[in-house]
């Protein structure tokens, strides 16, 4: 059995007296699409923030499988940029693009962690730096082509239509060559047409073997995309399984619809 690329055990996060995450265990295997769902305030985004190093969890282990080293690497205590270096790239629930930069540049920033040149390189513009710069532009261009944003390439990110901004976030995350792509509500605020396009985009990305962990409220999207669903409520896991199992799980139904008072 291959190792899971993301292996989280006993993850707990306290904010003062509030336990936002309670003993979460979650694995994502290579090439898998896993959805993380739950009512508002269930702790889904907190989970993302812990995994990507924005929060330091109170307890628990977060490991990512490093292919080059052939073993699990603990992400605890790492800064967000180091986590990205290790191959976890994310998007944000409320879009966080670099609005005063062009679309191409936004994606080029994603290449930052896979390139090296610094002050000396910038000043000398030696062969290696120029080659690296060339490579950044090429790769970014390719990614934009794949995501279908080439025609906006030189627009400021803030001038893009909403759906395109969401896609650009995905493009930017893909530019970091992630082992696992974390999508935080990619379809939030999209119209039905945009959502359909997004689903096919995610399917395309997944078809290339990209592992994806996504948070989403749009159940149609979750059911059609994910191979496994992980349901949270009040910071706890309440169910895990295939879309079919989750659909009929009493605990999930209870969390979403509530209980009948007189039952």
């Amino acid at each position: 059995m291959a190792q899971p690329i993301l292996h989280v055990t006993g993850l707990t996060m306290d904010f003062g007296g509030i336990r936002a995450l309670n003993n979460i265990d979650l694995d994502v295997n290579e090439g898998e699409i896993v959805a993380l769902i739950g009512p508002n305030g269930a702790g889904k985004t907190t989970f993302f923030n812990c995994v990507t190093g924005i929060y330091q969890p109170t307890k628990g282990e977060i490991n990512v499988y490093n292919k080059h080293k052939g073993r699990q690497i603990s992400l605890l205590g790492m800064k967000p940029n180091q986590v990205t270096q290790q191959g976890l790239a994310r998007t944000f629930q409320n879009i966080r693009l670099f609005s005063q930069m062009t679309v191409l540049e936004n994606v080029m920033i994603g290449r930052h962690c896979r390139t090296k040149s610094f002050i000396i390189g910038a000043l000398l513009r030696d062969k290696r730096t120029l080659r690296e710069e060339e490579e950044i532009i090429q790769k970014s261009h390719q990614i934009l082509e794949k995501i279908g944003l080439t025609r906006y390439e030189n627009e400021f990110a803030k001038n893009l239509p909403y759906g395109a901004q969401r896609r650009l976030e995905i493009a930017r995350a893909l530019a970091t060559e992630p082992v696992l792509l974390l999508l935080d509500e990619p379809a939030a605020g999209m119209n039905p047409q945009e959502t359909i396009e997004l689903v096919s985009l995610i399917q395309e990305i997944a078809a290339e073997g990209q592992s994806i962990l996504l948070i989403e409220h749009d159940m149609k999207l979750v059911m059609s995309l994910s191979e496994r669903i992980f349901v949270m409520d009040y910071g706890k896991r309440i169910a895990e399984g295939t879309p079919e199992e989750i659909r009929h799980d009493p605990a999930v139904i209870k969390a979403y619809l509530g209980e009948e008072v007189d039952a």
């Binding site: 966080r96 670099f98 609005s99 005063q100």
Partner: peptide, 17 residues
């Protein structure tokens, strides 16, 4: 410039703040 635009996103994209 990315740092100026959005510090959190900038770090999440792998830039050492």
């Amino acid at each position: 410039v990315a740092l100026r635009e959005d510090e959190i996103a900038c770090q999440a994209m792998g830039i050492d703040k």
